[in-house]
Every structure is written in C-alpha cells, then in structure tokens.
C-alpha cells in the first residue's frame, strides 16, 4: 500500500513537471535571421557512417549549403543521425526528425524497401523527403538524387576498351559484383555489360557476388584466380575494398603496375580513398569516378529548390560520373578521395 502511495506521489510529481514544462514549450514558427534569411532545418539520415565516401558526402553537403542556401535566401541548419545499418533504427531516426518539425529530410537508405514507410511518414507529415544514393523501392519520395551508375560504368568501360585495344589485349575478365540486390550494383553491371557487348574488347568469364563485403572480395578473387588461370583482367564494381583485392593479387603474385610483365588489367568504379594510391601508381588502369562532391552539390540544389516551393513529385536526378586514369588523376579536381586520403 505504502509503495502504491509513493508511486502515486512520483507520478504526480512527474505530471506536475510535465504540465510546467508544457507551458515552457514554444510553438515552432518560421524564423528569419538578421540578414533576412529564412531559417530552415534539414534532417540528414545516414544508414551508416563508416566510410570516407559518406563523410565526404556529408561535409560537402553541409559546406555547400551555407553559401548556396544564403544565395537563395535560406539559412540552413542540419540535424544528422546514423542508423548503424539497422533499418528499424533508421525509420525511428526519421520519425524523430519528423517530431522535430524539420523542413526537409535527406536519407540514404539501408534498405530500399523498408525506407518506404519512413518516406510515407514524412510525406504524411507534410515534410518533403529526398532519397540519396539509394532509391526507395516501395514509396516514391519527393525527389531522388544519386550517381548515374549505368552511365558512369559505361563511359569508364568504354575508355577501358580503348586502353585494352591500344595495348593489343583481348580481355578475359573476372567481375567483382557488389550486392546483387543493390540498384547501384545492378547499374554498374549493366553499364559494363553494355560496353562489353558494344565494343567486344573483352569477355566476362565469371561474376563473383561480394555483397559489398571486403572479405568476399578477397576470398572470391582468390578462388577465381585459381579456377580461371586464363583471366587477364578484373572489373571491380566498387574499389572501396581495394585492400582486399590487393591482398588476393599479392597472394597470386599478380599485383603489378602498368608495364610490368604478368599484370592483370584492372578497371574499377568509385575512385575511393582506398584505391587512390593504386590509381596514381598505375596498378588500376581506368576508373569511373563516383563523384561525391557533385552528388552533394546536386542534393543541395534540389533541396533548396524544394524548400523554396518547387514541386518535384518524385523527380530523379542522376549525376554523371567522370573517368580517371593514372595519367589524369593528379590533375583532376573535386576528387573526394584526394580530400580525404589521410582522413
């Protein structure tokens, strides 16, 4: 009985505090800075943040939004959270952003299917939401911004075909595929396959699914090199796991620079910090660049347009990539891996 009374007292104290605090809460209204800029808050929900590519995306977005927002009458504040690869956590994080009445949400989904319920919740709350890098498979967002995986892969593969032709090599290629269900990985594959069909400069003799896991890059490539000794080239869908590829090639005695005998010719996508030294030193022959800087810039531009009232209705913005080689890498500007090489 005594415990019940004490619990009741506790509840009463809590309730009193709640009522007091409720009186203190301010209703959110549109704020304007001294410069006449409209203050807006943007929520950025990452699925994970364990790679320099994501750090670069975030930094470029926040940095670019200051100047670009100011030019367009906005003072942009950011709320950023990370879901640690947990789709339920990511949806909860987005719900927390909705509670905070953010003006817009940008999200890179852990799972293209599960993000749909968060997209719907945001839209139901009247908050525009942009999916970034990974598309929603179930519910159409306000807009999507990402790289053009197909175009980048095709253009890079085209240049790789020219390179192989110039040195008189007919390629027999091992393809290190990413997650077979990831749309970016599918686009990377399709761009590559289109170039293969169009130029006929190589034949893909085996495709290894890696699920974007470095250990699978290493074990898959090691096994493939033993099973397919005739292979003379590799297509790496994302070179973020270049260290794992290097380990497999070193074991096989095939980690060679351009011009060295017995070299496996390598084409990769992304130009990550892990791959930059290998590009600079001529281990990787051609690379399609996953342009973090331009992705971020486009995301900010789309975001500002929406915040200033433009209707998007699920518009897709695919940023084309560039192609880099050992000869052009040092002169190429806005390459995120240069900015974050020693991050």
């Amino acid at each position: 009985m005594k415990k019940c009374v004490l619990s009741a007292v506790a509840v009463l104290i809590a309730a009193a505090g709640v009522v007091f605090a409720a009186g203190q809460q301010e209703s959110a209204g549109e704020a304007v800075t001294e410069d006449g800029l409209r203050e807006v808050t943007v929520g950025l929900s990452w699925n994970v943040k364990d790679d320099t590519l994501i750090v670069a995306w975030e930094d470029y977005m926040v940095e670019h939004s200051k100047e670009y927002g100011r030019e367009n009458g906005l003072d942009i504040n950011w709320i950023i959270n990370v879901a640690d690869r947990d789709p339920s956590r990511q949806n909860a994080n987005i719900e927390d952003m909705i509670v905070q009445d953010v003006d817009l949400i940008i999200t890179r989904a852990e799972d293209g299917a599960t993000i749909g319920s968060a997209v719907r919740a945001a839209k139901d709350a009247g908050i525009p939401i942009i999916t970034f890098d990974r598309e929603s498979k179930t519910v159409k967002p306000t807009a999507h911004v990402g790289g053009d995986g197909y175009g980048m892969s095709y253009e890079g593969a085209k240049q790789f075909a020219e390179y192989l032709k110039s040195i008189g090599v007919q390629g027999k290629v091992i393809e290190l595929h990413g997650d077979m269900k990831d749309q970016n990985a599918i686009d990377f594959h399709n761009g590559w396959a289109k170039a293969e069909e169009e130029f006929g400069q190589w034949e893909t003799i085996v495709t290894i699914p890696t699920e974007w896991k470095p250990e699978k890059y290493e074990s898959g490539l090691t096994n493939a090199l033993q099973s397919y000794p005739e292979a003379n080239a590799i297509y790496i869908q994302s070179d973020f796991a270049m260290d794992a590829v290097r380990a497999a090639l070193e074991k096989a005695g095939k980690w060679k620079k351009q011009g060295e005998p017995g070299k496996l010719h390598i084409y990769s996508n992304v130009a990550s910090t892990a791959a930059l030294p290998a590009i600079q030193q001529g281990y990787i022959d051609v690379t399609g660049v996953w342009d973090a800087y331009f992705h971020a810039v486009k995301a900010v531009e789309v975001m500002v347009s929406i915040l200033n009232g433009e209707e998007m209705d699920g518009a897709m913005f695919k940023v084309p990539g560039r192609v880099v080689t050992p000869e052009t890498v040092d002169s190429m500007e806005k390459l995120y891996s240069k900015d974050y090489l020693n991050y």
Partner: peptide, 21 residues
C-alpha cells in the same frame, strides 16, 4: 522505485529538451 526515477528524468528532459514533451 523505477517509476519515480523515470518520473524525475521525464521532468528534467521535458524542461531541457525541445519537443520532448
């Protein structure tokens, strides 16, 4: 009494954290 401790925390958070309440 976890209820009491929770009540105290709820009061503190509701005063200090915007939108919590």
């Amino acid at each position: 009494s976890p209820l009491f401790i929770f009540g105290v925390i709820a009061v503190v958070l509701s005063i200090t954290v915007p939108n919590f309440l």
